[in-house]
Simulated scan of single mutants.
Amino acid sequence: MTERQTAEQICPEIHYKKDRDRVTITGCYGIDGNLYIPDEIEGHAVYGIGPYAFSDGGEETDCVYLSPDAAYVGERHRICTDEVEEIRLPGRVGEIGRYAFYRCRNLRKLTLTDSLLDIGGGAFTGCRLKEAEIHFYRGEKSALKSIVDEIRFAIRAILYYHGAHGGVQTARILFPEHYEEAVENTPARLLVTEHHGSGGYYRQCFFNHELDYKKYDELLPFAVTEEKEETVIELVLGRLMYPFRLSEKSGSAYKEYLHGHMEAVGRYVAEREAFDEIRFLSRTGCFGARAVDEAVRRASELGHTELVGVLMNERQKLPAGKKKTFEL
């Protein structure tokens, strides 16, 4: 058991099947939907998540593991479907079975590594996963495309690229929502499929299990045309604050977008109390007077007093005589 694992709450009761030295999880039992699965169970590596493991399908199991704290946990029950909220998968998991998370409608966050490349059919059907955190140790291949292909709603990916000597580079990527709609063309007696949202384009930015950052960044015009301002601002700030594989040309395009939407940027940081984003915008000279003034106005309306104080301090930093301009 690693130091990291002992510091977190391990799922108190885990059902699994064992094949030689590999363990496949078939079900988790506990009292809440935040599930932390250890890397090893009784000396055997956790390699897979079985079919229907967190859905309401039938469970096939051979063994039961009880964590050291299981005796102190109240009456346990199977955690599945609507109860599942957050899952940390073991670092060596290389397979997720079909319909493993079927109808886990409240699953917010999934943490995994680049050991996982293949996901069974329908694994995330009926899910509204909001965030996928992936740790890379072997390169840039992962199961991210398989995940976002099954989630039509907006999903955020936090990607950590671990270097050989302990350094970590981070990317924060937004895949906007998208959906298809069948519209009847009555005169022609045809059904025409219409696509909504730019998320469909962004979900095509992969090659051989790797995210193509250049292609992703080139899609900004589609997001601007089809998404709300706050969605584009989130996407743009994610790329600028965590510029993994970001070219100078694309970085300039993102900054130009912020320049043209200062009031919207101000509302965005105020409504989300986005202190990190404010610090970034200030540090890089991208927080113009129009953005600050709008942020102060909106934060005051919402009663975010601490944020108003921070913003007033930012306003004082603006050079005299230039408080109505913005410079990249």
Score class of each variant (00 low, 15 high):
residue 111 T to N: 03
residue 53 A to F: 09
residue 5 Q to F: 05
residue 105 R to V: 15
residue 73 V to G: 00
residue 103 R to N: 15
residue 85 E to Q: 12
residue 13 E to S: 07
residue 30 G to W: 06
residue 47 Y to P: 00
residue 40 E to Q: 08
residue 117 L to E: 15
residue 97 G to Y: 03
residue 122 G to P: 10
residue 80 C to S: 12
residue 67 S to W: 01
residue 86 E to T: 12
residue 119 I to Q: 14
residue 116 L to N: 13
residue 25 I to K: 01
residue 128 R to Q: 06
residue 110 L to R: 02
residue 108 R to N: 14
residue 57 G to F: 13
residue 34 N to M: 07
residue 89 L to E: 05
residue 127 C to D: 12
residue 101 F to G: 06
residue 85 E to A: 15
residue 11 C to A: 15
residue 17 K to A: 07
residue 69 D to T: 06
residue 76 R to N: 04
residue 57 G to Y: 14
residue 22 R to S: 07
residue 97 G to E: 10
residue 79 I to M: 14
residue 60 E to T: 14
residue 101 F to R: 02
residue 105 R to N: 06
residue 32 D to K: 02
residue 88 R to W: 09
residue 59 E to T: 15
residue 44 H to Y: 07
residue 128 R to M: 03
residue 15 H to W: 15
residue 120 G to I: 10
residue 34 N to G: 07
residue 110 L to Q: 05
residue 124 F to N: 05
residue 28 C to G: 03
residue 130 K to T: 11
residue 58 G to D: 14
residue 104 C to N: 05
residue 60 E to R: 07
residue 119 I to Y: 14
residue 105 R to E: 14
residue 99 Y to W: 09
residue 72 Y to I: 02
residue 115 S to D: 15
residue 16 Y to G: 05
residue 106 N to D: 08
residue 114 D to F: 05
residue 103 R to V: 09
residue 129 L to W: 03
residue 77 H to G: 06
residue 34 N to W: 02
residue 58 G to T: 11
residue 29 Y to T: 01
residue 112 L to A: 12
residue 30 G to I: 06
residue 111 T to I: 11
residue 5 Q to M: 14
residue 129 L to A: 05
residue 49 I to M: 12
residue 27 G to A: 15
residue 90 P to K: 03
residue 94 G to Y: 11
residue 43 G to C: 07
residue 5 Q to D: 09
residue 116 L to S: 14
residue 64 V to R: 03
residue 69 D to K: 05
residue 125 T to S: 10
residue 114 D to E: 08
residue 20 R to A: 08
residue 89 L to Y: 00
